[in-house]
């Protein structure tokens, strides 16, 4: 199953299920990464980690290993080029 860590740059997908037992996951949920939210992959730092994800205009930096706790549905789509998705 695909997770937020498998999303390609510039693509967005909807979170389907979250493993709430993962470290720091509750904190990310408090920032808005919850089931049903559409999340876009905006880029990475050098080496591909951490990721910059954006959820309804808010950018959040997350490490790849934490992004794996967030499963997304299969139909990732290329997001529009606007500043705020």
């Amino acid at each position: 199953m695909k997770t937020l860590a498998d999303l390609n740059k510039g693509y967005s997908a909807e979170i389907e299920w979250i493993d709430t037992s993962g470290p720091g996951v509750l904190r990310l949920m408090m920032l808005g990464l919850v089931e049903g939210a559409a999340v876009r992959h905006r880029g990475t730092a050098i080496g591909g980690d951490p990721l910059e994800l954006s959820v309804y205009g808010a950018s959040i930096s997350v490490r790849r290993e934490q992004a794996r706790y967030f499963k997304v549905n299969g139909n990732a789509a290329e997001a529009s080029s606007g500043l705020i998705p």
Binding site: L28, L31, I60, S61, V62
Partner: peptide, 12 residues
């Protein structure tokens, strides 16, 4: 301690 996790809001 355990490896720190990292999350940070990135302002525009």
């Amino acid at each position: 301690g355990p490896k720190p996790h990292f999350m940070l809001a990135l302002p525009d």
